[in-house]
Design a protein around this nucleic acid. Structure first.
Lengths: 196, 196, 196, 196
DNA sequence: AATGAATGAGGTTTCATTCAT
DNA sequence: GATGAATGAAACCTCATTCAT
C-alpha cells in the first residue's frame, strides 16, 4: 500500500503527486487513504520512514555479516548494500534522496533525521578507524563531515548510476571506495590535516 | 530584485514560494514581477541560471588564476572557490542544489544542465590528470562518475557546513581534498581498478 | 445544472459570466462545476451544443411531422418550431445566437458549426424547391446565401420579439414567411436573377 | 486613430482586445489613449458611434441621391450602399454587427441605439410604402419587425459574403432585394396577413 | 505634455481534505 | 465501514487603469 504511494512520489515528487493519483494507483478511495494516514504529509513521512528503515537495515545487516572482518571490509559491505538497495528499491531511494536536499520542504526536520541516521552508520565506522589509529576524532575536526561527504558522494554516484546503468552495484561500490577510502584512511589516521 | 526572489525560493522551496510573498519581499506588486519575468518558472529559472553562472564563473576564474600550477593546485583553487561561493551566496547555493535532486520538479532538464556544467569542470581536470599519467579515461570507466562523486561530496559537505558554520571555507576545501584527492589520484593513475 | 449556467451566460455573455456566479446560481461550489465540465470553455460549449441539438431536433421533428405536405408547409413548420424554441428556451436561444456573430470569441469554430447546421436545414428545403422547379441551384448562385439570409432574418426577428413579446410564435413565423417566402420562391424558380 | 483601435476590436472582439495592443497599434502610449477617450468602453463606443454614423450617412446619401425614384429604387440604393460600406469598411462593419447581438455586453443600450437607427432607415421607407398603398402600419402589425427582419437578413448575408467574396456588392444587394422585396411589398400592401 | 512603471482587483483553476450516503 | 460528492483556500496570472517622472 505504501509501495503504490511511493511509486507516485518517486515519479512526480512530493508536490506534484496528487492524492487522487495515489488513491487511484492504490486501488482504493481517497477517504481510505486519509483514514489510514491522516494527511498527505503523514503518508509521505510514513513512506520515507519505511524506506529509510529498510535501507538502514540493509546496510546494518550487511555490515554485521562481516563483523569479524576489517573496518575497510565492513565499510565495503555497507557501501555495497547501499548500492544494492538503490538497485532494488529505486522508488524508495528516489524519494529518500530527492526532496531530502529541498529547502523548506514539508517534514524537513523529520526527513533530515532519517538522513542523519544513515550518515551515522558511516560515522560510527569512521570513529572506530580513528580509535584504532589512536586518534581523537575531535583532533581531526570530527568524523561527521567525513561521513557526510562519503554518503553525499555515494548518493550522487547512485543518481548518476540510475541514468547510466551499465555497471553493477559491486562496481559502483568499488568505485566509491576507490575514491574515498584512501583519503579517509589518511585523514582518520591524523596524517592529512593541513592539506595533501 | 532576483536576490529577494532567491531568498524566498531558498527559504520555502519552489512550490511553497508564492508569488505574493516574493512580490511583497521585493517591495513591488505581483504584476511587476510578471512584467519582468513572465512566469514563476521563468523567474525561478532566471535566478538559478544567474546563480549557476556566477558559481561557474567563480570556479573557472579561481582555477585560471593558478593555471600555471599543478592540477592538484588547480583543483584546490576551484574547490575553494566553490566553498567561498557557498559562503557568500547562501541563497543561491541553496536554490541551486536543493531542487536539483528533486524528481519531477519544474525545469528539471534545465537545472540538470547547470549541474552538469559544474561536474564537467571537475571532469576536465580529471581528464588531464589521467592524460598526464598516460591513462586512457575509458580504461578506468570514464571520469564522469568520478567528477559526479567529487561534486556530490562537496555539495553535501557544503550543506552540512551551512548548519555547522564553525569552520572556514579554506578548511572545508582542504577537508574535501583530503578525503577525495588521494583516491582520485590513484584511480586516475589506473592503480585502483578492482578495489583498494 | 446546465440550465443555471445558461441563465448566467445569457444574462452576462461569455466573458462577463464568472464561474463564481455560475456556481452560486447552480447552488454548488466552483470545484463541482470543474469536476463536471473541466473548464469554462467546456461548460460554455456543452451548453451551446445542448441548446443547438435541442433546437435542431425541434425543427427537424416539426418538419418531419408534416413531411407529406408541400415544401412551403414544411418550411412553415420548421420556422414555427424555431420561434417556439425561442419562446420556450430564451436563455438557450440568447446564448446560441449572441456570441455567434462575435469576432474572436472562444470556440468560434465550434459555434459556427452549429449555426451552419441550422442554415443547412433551410438550405436542404430550398434545394428541393429548386429541384421541383427544375432549376439548377448553381444557376441561381447557390442556395446557401438564401438560407443564410432567411435564418438571419428569423434570428433578428426573434431578438426583436424577445423585447416586444406581444405576438405569438405563430404570428412571428407567419410574418417571416410572409416576408421571405414570396421572394425565395421566385428566386428558386429562377425568375429573379437580375433584380426584381 | 480610431481606425487602429477598430482594427484591433474587429480582429479580437471587445474583451480580447487589450489596451496594450491598441496603444501599440496606434503608435502611442496607453496613457494617451486614456487621455483622449477615458476608458476602454468609451473608446469602443466612440468607434462604434463613428462607424455607425458613417454607415448611416452612406445609406442616407445613397438613398437621397435617388430621391426622385420609386420607393423600390430608394430601397435598392440604400441596400447597395450598405453592402458597399461593408466591403470598404470591414472593420467598422465587423465591430458594428459582431457584439451587437451580444447579451450583456458593455454599452448594450448604446449599441442597440445605433442599430435601431439603421433599422429605422428601412422602417421609414416601409412606412411610405404602406402609406402609398393606403394601409395603416398598425393594421399589419407595425413596420418595425419588417425592417428588423430585412436588416437582419442583410447583415447575415454580409457576414456570409465576407467569407465568400466571389460576388460584387451589387449582386449581393440584388439578392437581398430579390429575397425580401416581393414579400415585403405584399405585406405592406396588406395582402399577406394570415399567411402566404 | 507624454510615458514608463506600477497596481488593485478579479478570473480561472487545482488540491488536500471532509461530509453524508 | 467505504465512498462519491463536495468544498475552502489559495495559487498563478492578466488587464484596465493611474502615478511620478
Amino acid at each position: 500500500m505504501l509501495r503504490a504511494a511511493g511509486a507516485v512520489f518517486a515519479a512526480r515528487g512530493y508536490h506534484a503527486a496528487s492524492m487522487d493519483e495515489i488513491a487511484d494507483r492504490v486501488g482504493v478511495s481517497k477517504p481510505m487513504v486519509y483514514t489510514y494516514f491522516g494527511s498527505k504529509e503523514a503518508l509521505y513521512f510514513a513512506y520515507i520512514e519505511d524506506a529509510g528503515r529498510d535501507l538502514i537495515a540493509s546496510i546494518v545487516d550487511a555490515e554485521r555479516a562481516v563483523r569479524t572482518g576489517s573496518l575497510a571490509e565492513r565499510l565495503r559491505a555497507g557501501t555495497l548494500a547501499f548500492f544494492r538497495f538503490v538497485d532494488e528499491h529505486r522508488d524508495g531511494y528516489a524519494v529518500l534522496f530527492s526532496e531530502m536536499a529541498a529547502r523548506g520542504g514539508p517534514l524537513r526536520r523529520e526527513v533530515s533525521a532519517i538522513r542523519r541516521q544513515i550518515v551515522e552508520l558511516a560515522q560510527i565506522l569512521f570513529d572506530r578507524v580513528a580509535e584504532e589509529a589512536g586518534v581523537d576524532p575531535d583532533a581531526i575536526g570530527g568524523t561527521e563531515p567525513l561521513a557526510v561527504a562519503y554518503v553525499g558522494a555515494g548518493e550522487w554516484l547512485a543518481n548518476w548510476w540510475l541514468e547510466h546503468p551499465e555497471e553493477s552495484a559491486e562496481q559502483l561500490a568499488e568505485r566509491l571506495l576507490d575514491i574515498g577510502w584512501r583519503g579517509l584512511e589518511r585523514v582518520l589516521a591524523g596524517q592529512a590535516q593541513a592539506g595533501a
